[in-house]
């Protein structure tokens, strides 16, 4: 890449990557100004944030991209369920959940996907 193209790529990164993303964080800094830690609005705001996160997780499992999309739907859901069960059984350990979910996905990928 020539120097000019490189410079151009960084400008694009700032204009269409950094700014449209960062604006929501900075809006949060402004909007939260007068809000008290224990206020009811924040309980609702946290519920909204949690529901969005759940939506992100579900989308990544049900409508994935790239290599994960090659895996059958049943395998993705099954791996997530096994990981979740392991998390509940092993003292609510995140590591146990992730390790078991990944192991099931790997086993399925090796056995089921040619």
């Amino acid at each position: 890449m020539s120097g000019w193209i490189d410079w151009h790529a960084y400008l694009v990164l700032i204009l269409v990557g950094f700014l449209p993303n960062e604006i929501w964080r900075m809006l949060g800094v402004v909007l939260v100004r007068g809000l008290d830690e224990g206020s009811e609005v924040l309980v609702w705001v946290r519920a909204v944030a949690t529901a969005v996160l759940a939506g992100v997780v579900a989308q990544l499992i049900f409508f994935p991209a790239g290599a994960l999309a090659v895996m059958p739907m049943g395998l993705r859901v099954g791996a997530a369920l096994c990981g979740f069960a392991a998390f509940l059984l092993v003292r609510r350990s995140v590591l146990a959940g992730v390790a078991v979910g990944e192991a099931v996905l790997l086993a399925g990928a090796v056995l089921l996907v040619p």
Binding site: I61, A67, G97
Partner: peptide, 16 residues
């Protein structure tokens, strides 16, 4: 399979 595992890390860890 490894590429799929890397992509599965995010949903699995956030879920639990």
């Amino acid at each position: 399979p490894l590429a799929a595992m890397l992509l599965f890390l995010t949903p699995m860890s956030f879920l639990v």
